[in-house]
Design a protein around this nucleic acid. Structure first.
Lengths: 215, 215
DNA sequence: GGATTGAGTGAACATCCGTACACCGGAAAT
DNA sequence: ATTTCCGGTGTACGGATGTTCACTCAATCC
């Protein structure tokens, strides 16, 4: 029943990450103290240094972890988009619906990760903010290449694809933030209906966008 | 050369507000201490209480102040929208351009206020977050009634107008956040070009939106 | 099976924190 | 002219903070 040394280390490392996520739920990394984390985990303050150099380093690890789960979301959206391409007419509407469903599901299940990204993106230590911004840019770029494969965007310029991807990403981020702030289930339902309509409006715009064509 | 008592009080109150805006530029209200503010202002810590009950109360005052300047922005946008309505064709494009111009100008001039709203909206004390959320909802509602007066939205449902207004507001907020994060002027120019295109895409969608009509 | 390694310990430090309390001195009120 | 009011002062406190250092003791290595 003994525990290997690596297992033990990994276990308290996890405990530290979880404690940090929990303690910053209603606050921010910049207001989190090393001693709070240590107390929550049940170790002595100095033991923290065996795992991270500083709270900021802890934050960077949480960025990695949070975006791992966000990447899982993007993979799901991508998989959900591999639908029956014969029904060309309302294909994009289906895509919007499925994307929103996947987002909602992930926000509910990875609530702490999304809350962490939403907060520290604007309020975290500089290094953490930069790391999050960088990851979000990667997401935008991936989405842009996905959009290029969709019907109707064949003639689009690279710039327009990037701009559209940024609009989708920021709308999704805003929606996640709203969901995190929403208390009652009724408010959440309204947020979901709202983003659905918003994306549909954008999609209608996309369908009539004169990119590449004569203006 | 004597100073009236009210003048003196107002002067240090202003100094406290300014110090708080400055000190949270790279951090957040939840990481701001009463003593830092006092030292920055040049008063003794206990004198802080002559003006505010707590850092949170200070935050609420900053919310009021920041939204006063944001309301000034909205007023400018509204004024900029009272253009020559004869050129019906590209009227909406003009509107987008002017709105973006006004936003950019205000972000540059009221940088600290916008940064404060962007940060504390997600990372501030609960009361501050709620206050900001409430103010942003008011902005959305105002924008929705403005949109109703525009040509082409006559047949729109109240819900659709609200949803569209929310999309505009969140896009503007996201843009302001990006501008605050952008270091070089080149990056800022790209952000401006991006939001211009994004709003145009939405506007195209709006022009073809089947609200009220048979779907 | 003895030496080594390394996660966690515990005490100590200088510094910061919010807040309580008694006080000062000049503007305002009488 | 005297009293009241009140923004700002100075001290003092109990507690939290980051970091140091020397330590224990069980898993690992040779």
């Amino acid at each position: 029943m003994t525990e290997t040394r690596l297992e033990r280390k990994e276990r308290t490392r996890r405990a530290i990450l979880d404690a940090a996520l929990g303690l910053t739920r209603e606050s921010s990394l910049v207001a989190l103290s090393l001693r709070q984390v240590a107390k929550e985990v049940g170790i002595v303050p100095t033991a923290f240094y065996r795992h991270f150099d500083s709270i900021e380093a802890l934050g960077l690890a949480l960025v990695d972890e949070s975006f791992a789960s966000l990447r899982a979301l993007l993979r799901d959206v991508r998989r959900a988009s591999e639908v029956d391409r014969s029904a060309a007419e309302d294909l994009v509407d289906q895509l919007v619906d499925r994307s929103v469903d996947v987002l909602v599901d992930h926000v509910r299940r990875q609530r702490d990760h999304f809350a962490f990204i939403a907060r520290e993106r604007v309020a975290g230590p500089t290094a953490v903010r930069d790391a999050i911004r960088h990851e979000l840019e990667l997401c935008e770029r991936e989405l842009a290449t996905d959009l290029a494969r969709l019907p109707g965007t064949a003639a689009w310029s690279v710039d327009d694809l990037r701009v559209l991807a940024a609009l989708f990403v920021s709308t999704m981020v805003t929606t996640a933030e709203s969901m995190l702030a929403a208390g009652r289930a009724e408010a959440e339902r309204q947020i979901i209906a709202t983003v659905r309509t918003q994306l549909r409006m954008v999609v209608v715009g996309v369908a009539h966008w004169p990119s590449g064509a004569a203006v």
